[in-house]
Amino acid sequence: MDMMIAVILTIMTAATPLLLAALGELVVERSGVLNLGVEGMMVMGAVCGFGAALMTGSPWLGLFASIAAGMFMSLLFGFLTLSLVSNQVATGLALTLLGLGLSGQIGESFVGQPGVKLPNYDGFDPLIPFAILLAWGVSWFLFKTKAGLVVRAVGNSHASAHAMGYHVIRVRYLCVLFGGACAGLAGGYLSLVYTPQWIENMTSGRGWIALALVVFASWRPWRTVAGAYLFGAISILAFTVQTFAWGIPSQFLSMLPYLVTIIALVVISGNRMLTRANTPACLGQPFVPDR
């Protein structure tokens, strides 16, 4: 029984950073913006959160620093793609490359230092329920409030939303900032909860998996929860199998999350009904208000 609880807890801690980042990106994409820089924002959140917690001794301040770092990065992205209408795909890639580079530089002196761990209750940390609560909040916001309707309108037809008098760019800026905050927090979770230390490139593709999760969940918050927990379970499975050592080389088990991501994308994308109904129609398209 205890074993069972331990396994479930590890699945939850593996799923939570994916869930946080994916929920943020979900809102961003619902507003019609494709931010491929999740990995970069996340890794910056991880390093800044770790550093702030180390300096102040408070993991909570660390989490705030993570959020701030993620938002700062997303603001860069927003300025380029929204104010300067640069290519969103390329800018997202740039954000990831910049984040990975900057975090390596910032975190140079943090390598090998013992981190500050967020307090938890028998391994159950407060961010696990927070992430689920956030899914509920995002779902409620997008589908039950007027502001959420505006976000979806901006994402589905920016020209009509603009004609109705909504500030397309302002709405998108806010969504991008929210996405940055979530990705930053997800990064902070990695360096303050999941493995409380700083390792270069410690996000190891989780930002990209979060992006895939949004597609997998066909832009629906609750499906994102299910997807994140499924991925969490799979990555834990890899660890468990490794400890039982069935003669499978560890590298193949480490590949598993990435292979599963590819398979999940294939299965979901092949199903046109599911994706087409929910894909924001203006996803990735730049908008310049004409006057």
Binding site: V89, G205, W208, V266, G270, T275
Partner: peptide, 18 residues
């Protein structure tokens, strides 16, 4: 399968490295 090539090509980097 119209799977997003950005994500699949990136995931394959990790697979190749392992």
């Amino acid at each position: 399968f119209s799977a997003n090539e950005i994500l699949t090509s990136l995931m394959l980097v990790y697979v190749a490295q392992y």
